[in-house]
Design a protein around this nucleic acid. Structure first.
Lengths: 331, 331
DNA sequence: GCTCTCAATGAAATCGTTACCGTCTCACTC
DNA sequence: GAGTGAGACGGTAACGATTTCATTGAGAGC
């Protein structure tokens, strides 16, 4: 039996000239031997890999695994497998991870870009060499050098401020990223201007820097609570839902009650958010749509059917009001 | 330049006979061409892949991504990459996922086994053909046909019951898996016997079946609360932390307060558990140790240095007491 | 009987690596 | 000056698949 004959049969090729008798023999033998073609050998020969890589910053934030699940489904519909890599929010690890993805010879890469400015050279490298790539990010000031699917948080933040001011809040706190570039869309400036436009005095606006995980937010916000004992903020917009949870915990630790003493707004709308004992008000991104768009961009680029210039698709964010925001209870 | 010369140099082989001059030339050329060896071709040639597959049931449960992160670190120390697959708790998907892992030609597989009985034939297949595999599971009644790293929940459950009874609880509820086989270690029987031994009447013990995610637990437990309005259970042991959160939410929805009206105990000790507004009392598995053991088993089997008979390593579980358990507030 | 066609199959090249073995050039020794 | 041995490198097969091209054989048409 020639290997090529078997190959055409097992791949169910339309031009399968083999006789039915031969086909049956081959299929039977394949079953008996428990034969599975080697993906590695196929990759070497074909130069295709039927694999999409996804690089996320952190597996501890449920947002990313959930997003991975989404993207997995989306690309699976086109016959691609998903490989998930994570950088642990470490820049060096990210480089290594990127190399690893390239070594693995994926057909395309989707990556969460936490800091567009910081990663710009890296993205530029990706644009000039390497497989098709799509960046998922908060809407940056400058267009990215590769296809991007971004969330425009301006509407969501404006709704959030509107909501909080409408409830009567006067003193505000914001969680911000440690690295300035990671403040998606220059959040501090945005918040300040939004609030000033609402007539809130700048001295009643606090910014707290912390990392994107619970513990960091808890510590950072606890410090703020202790420092501002008499002019404590009554409303908080966090970095993400995880940091919102950390901040809520800090509030509980300090004897405050949410939402009576403190209104909290998160970002991401992780599945857990609505099931917290005090369901979290949060700014939601349409990840299903964003992921579908990501998959579509990748598939098209892989097929070579895309324009040369990188595209940017912008999705709106939306405030989902739940229980963690209310009128301030104590003046 | 012969390809073999370059190969030995780029792999930094100890027996690199090449002259320093040649080495420099090669390394320079490699940098200029941005050369990276093809993992696929290496795999074909070497028959090794430097990759471990991990199959988890669900990416929406933070326990698994966190475990994946752990295992990733553990195998990375030995030069292996981790590929994460998930089955969405679907048996068919699990088969596909298993095939996908085998196709990808991993050197070893770690898999979370939710239902040892259900998966027994599948595991047997893995034992006879396929790469080295390690099952992560709750301690099953029968030994598994492959290396296994299991949690013995008996101590943890006994501590949990002891704790609850000691607090004065009289009426108990338990969340159990939908599929009977998934009740790790026959939980219902275990709970019943533990409680009866403490003098609790069987009629004061309720079992509620639900899935392993928040929404299912919320719905199931809400139904229980409504059905048992006057002889409501005051203590609950959930399937996992996620279902504990769902149940707590159901309690809140029905106007109950945790822990005053209901004590809740979870299982898994996900990182989030201690940061919930009411920090979750939970039964913890030593996942760091378990994962380290898993990695070690895989590495040894891959090196061919293991006994033929599958080993079973048992780890104890432990009750971590936090805020979600207290004396029953209303008789 | 000869070519022609078409179905069926086999042989060989190829992808990017690595492993094995052979060759060539010196310098050194006796 | 012949033999020896080490240093430096090249040639080539092989891994497991797919693709292209060549070959075989049978039957049809003249």
């Amino acid at each position: 039996m020639a290997p090529n004959t078997a190959s055409t049969i097992l791949n169910h090729r339309p031009d399968s000239w083999a006789s039915k008798e031969t086909k049956e023999r081959v299929l039977l033998a394949a079953k008996e031997l428990n034969y599975r073609p080697s993906k590695a050998a196929q990759s070497v020969r074909l130069g295709r890999f039927n694999t999409i890589g996804l690089v996320v910053p952190d597996l501890h934030n449920p947002f990313y695994p959930v997003l991975a699940d989404c993207l997995d489904r989306a690309v699976a519909a086109h016959g691609y497998d998903l490989i998930l890599e994570h950088t642990r929010n470490d820049l060096a690890a990210e480089q290594h991870c990127f190399q690893s993805i390239l070594d693995r010879q994926v057909d395309g890469v989707a990556l969460i870009v936490s800091d567009p400015d910081l990663h710009r050279p890296f993205l530029a490298g990706l644009a000039t060499s390497g497989p098709p790539a799509v960046a998922l990010a908060a809407k940056p000031d400058l267009p990215l050098p590769i296809d991007s699917v971004v969330s425009d948080f301006s509407a969501g933040f404006a709704q959030a401020i509107e909501h909080l001011v409408g409830l009567g809040h006067q003193r505000f706190a914001f969680l911000c990223a440690l690295a300035k570039g990671q403040d998606d869309g220059k959040r501090p400036e945005l918040f300040r201007s939004l609030l000033v436009a609402k007539g809130i005095a700048a001295e009643n606006i606090s910014f707290v820097r912390c990392e994107h995980h619970i513990a960091s937010a808890r510590n950072a916000f606890r410090d703020l609570i202790r420092q501002t004992k008499f002019k404590r903020p009554t409303a908080l917009i966090a970095l993400n839902d995880l940091s919102a949870i950390g901040a809520m915990r800090a509030a509980v630790d300090e004897g405050l009650s949410v939402p009576r003493d403190l209104s909290v707004i998160g970002v991401d709308n992780i599945p857990l958010a609505e099931y917290l004992p005090v369901a979290l008000t949060t700014i939601s991104q349409p990840i299903e749509d964003m992921v579908a768009r990501t998959a579509s961009l990748l598939i098209h680029r892989i097929a070579g059917k895309s324009p040369v210039r990188p595209s940017q698709t912008v999705f709106p964010t939306e405030l989902v009001i739940r229980e963690s925001t209310a009128r301030p209870g104590r003046a």
